[in-house]
Write a protein that binds this DNA or RNA. Structure first.
Length: 415
RNA sequence: GCGGGUGUAGCUCAGUCGGUUAGAGCGCUAGAUUGUGGAUCUAGAGGUCGGGGGUUCAAUUCCCCUCACUCGCCCCA
């Protein structure tokens, strides 16, 4: 550590980045609340098995991307690489099965030890939505709709495409998986090195390989749709029908698979081509077996996670900040009086900034830079007259205003 | 973990076929205006040329390593 610097893949949220971040979170939370989701904020670390068991020991995230450590009590702890496992753990340890169904919204940092690039960091931030305890396709429809509505509210829905697929129930998925293994084993000599590896660990993954040679083989591979049992096919049809009813456009993508073991039935991704290799902005699916796998009561679930940094980059328009009022006292007596006046104005709901240093010229420059709507100037002259000088920073006009009338005048100015 | 590109002032970038004091724009500070911002003018501050090592009389420039960023692979939000 030659220089003092942030850890690789971590960034300070400040200025425009912080504004974009908060904007995404606020828009998503508002939307989720309108859909009846309640907030949950689980710890950012859990016992390692919570993640390892649910995401699958064979998944890349668990194999090499987790920030794990032994704490001073000898416990095996991991920083969360995603939200779902922690929320399901909270559901189990909180005995929440009494209150099903539950709909949760969460947001915050997550951690993965990865090579950083655009839209991919080691500490990144997600918004997350989960519906627990709903077996039917209604939950799938609502959770996908919520994602679409958040993108709509952020003004970026048109920049995204919704890819949709089903992995079927565990029975269908297993049969399909066997069929894929058989098929790809026959073509093993022509598969890429990566895909030969996938064949053992996660054969479904071969379907979305970017390797040209793989793609040729994948083109003739058996399709999930052919292996769905009637129940799984009906379920997926109902999901599609619901989305059709709401006019939510989607693209059926039989190559869409999920990396994590716990997914069943519906899988979806809102993707964009505006962020380079990191296309997914909101992605998720159904995970009916997860809670039981964790040791809880068998409870179906479905959810998604969205990358706040990625969403923020797409929603480029910076939210317009409130224009403050700049208070400019000149001299000790004025500063003492300003302290009280500012306090009162802030209680009245005004956004007031008082610079702590600089002469009048300096402070007005600062006010201008903050796009302040007006400046309140208070010096010995004003104190003698019992007024402040209210300067309109848009047109340069100014007037004396009695101390008791400041709020009235400001309200008129801001209206 | 693997491959390519980049790293010069707070920011965006010139530049040096290896040579003496490394530049611009914007921003910052001060003054013109001892109590009036935006525009203009003037002056000023700010750089171990990412870090370490090597070659050389001499390295910001060439070579190696390293760190960070970036693009792609893997994987994923």
């Amino acid at each position: 550590m030659a220089k003092i610097q942030s850890v690789r893949g971590t960034h300070d949220l400040v200025g425009e980045t912080a504004a974009a971040h908060n904007y995404v979170v606020a828009a998503a939370r508002d939307c989720a609340h309108r859909y009846g989701f309640e907030d949950i904020d689980p710890p950012i670390f859990e016992f390692t098995p919570v993640f390892a068991r649910t995401m699958g020991e064979g998944s890349d995230v668990v194999r090499k991307e987790m920030y794990s450590f032994t704490d001073n009590g000898g416990e095996d702890i991991s920083l969360r690489p995603e939200f779902t496992a922690g929320i399901c753990r909270a559901f189990i340890s909180g005995g929440m099965q009494q209150n099903l169904p539950l709909k949760f919204f969460a947001h915050g940092p997550a951690f993965r030890y990865e090579r950083p690039q655009k839209g991919r960091q080691r500490q990144f931030h997600q918004i997350d939505a989960e519906i627990l305890g709903v077996e039917g396709p209604g939950a799938d429809i609502e959770i996908i709709t919520l994602g679409a509505e958040i993108l709509h509210d952020l003004g970026i829905l048109q920049a995204c495409v919704l890819d949709l697929n089903t992995l079927g129930d565990p029975e269908s998925r297993l049969v399909y998986r066997d069929a894929l293994v058989t098929y790809f084993s026959d073509h093993k000599d022509k598969l890429s090195e990566d895909s030969v590896d996938r064949l053992g660990r996660n054969p479904l993954r071969i379907l979305d390989s970017k390797d040209d040679g793989d793609r040729k083989i994948v083109a003739d591979a058996p399709l999930m749709a052919e292996f769905l049992n009637p129940a799984s096919a009906d379920f997926f049809a109902a999901v599609c029908e619901g989305l059709d009813t709401l006019g939510i456009a989607y693209n059926l993508n039989q190559r869409l698979v999920r990396g994590l073991d716990y997914y069943t039935h519906t899988a979806f991704e809102f993707v964009t081509d505006a962020l380079g290799a990191q296309g997914a902005v909101i992605a998720g699916g159904r995970y009916d077996g997860l809670i039981k796998m964790l040791g809880g009561p068998p409870t179906p679930g479905i959810g998604w996670a969205g990358g706040i940094e990625r969403l923020g980059m797409l929603a480029a328009h910076a939210p317009v900040p409130v224009r403050p009022i700049a208070f400019v006292p000149m001299g000790d007596a004025a500063e003492r009086l300003a302290l009280k006046l500012c306090h009162g104005l802030r209680r009245d709901g005004f956004t007031v900034d008082m610079a702590f240093r600089g002469n009048l010229s300096r402070r007005l420059k600062r006010a201008n830079k903050q796009h302040a709507r007006a400046a309140l100037i208070l010096g010995d002259d004003e104190i003698a007259k019992g007024v402040v000088t209210l300067r309109d920073l848009d047109d340069g006009g100014q007037q004396d205003v009695a101390l008791d009338d400041i709020a009235v005048h400001l309200r008129k100015l801001l209206a």
